[in-house]
């Protein structure tokens, strides 16, 4: 049962503005979810997320696992007969979820993204070894990938030292506004 009186009327225009895609055109044909390689780990299929946004059901959409599981591979978009940029809708919902401070369904994925950006802010490039180590510490999951990590180090797949840019202050407009 959907209680329309308690729905958030601002959700649709907000997401529409920031995603710049016309998801009102969604036909609910389910092509997106049927083609998605990761739909099994989602709590709502992409077309269901779009429906939630159309109806203004903010908590369900913003606290969903789906918006974090989506990797933006564009498989759904290429399948969509209405050419809706579905990953752009997922981006917009993630940004809104962070802005509104709602419960994050997949905190580990958010932590990973934060570690990547931390590395880029520090070096201008991603330093995978440090990202992995910081991520493992933050999520208290120290041993699950130790074997893989050691094999990668042995094959020089993970560089010990970061590849850095020379002029890190040239990135100030990006991170310091």
């Amino acid at each position: 049962m959907i209680d329309l009186d308690s729905c958030d009327q601002s959700l649709f225009p907000t997401v529409h503005r920031s995603s710049r895609t016309d998801f009102a055109a969604c036909l609910q044909c389910k092509s997106c979810g049927n083609g998605c390689p990761f739909v099994s780990a989602m709590d709502f299929t992409p077309n269901q997320i779009i429906r939630l946004v159309q109806l203004g059901m903010a908590p369900q959409a913003l606290e969903s696992a789906t918006i974090w599981i989506c990797v933006g591979c564009n498989t759904c978009t290429i399948n969509c007969p209405m050419a809706i940029d579905i990953p752009a809708v997922m981006d917009a919902l993630r940004h809104l979820a962070l802005e509104r401070g709602v419960a994050i369904a997949e905190p580990d994925i958010l932590e990973f993204h934060r570690e990547v950006l931390h590395s880029v802010e520090r070096y201008g490039r991603t330093h995978k070894l440090e990202i992995m180590m910081r991520y493992k510490l933050k999520t208290l999951d120290l041993f699950s990938d130790l074997g893989v990590g050691l094999r990668m180090l042995k094959k020089r797949k993970l560089d010990l030292t970061p590849s850095k840019i020379d002029d890190i202050h040239h990135l100030d407009p990006v991170f310091k506004g």
Binding site: D91, H95, L98, L110, H113, R114, L117, D166, L171
Partner: peptide, 14 residues
């Protein structure tokens, strides 16, 4: 002196 393009993480959260 190129820098990271932002990968999947920048557009995901910022």
């Amino acid at each position: 002196d190129w820098n990271c393009c932002g990968s999947s993480s920048a557009h995901a959260i910022d």
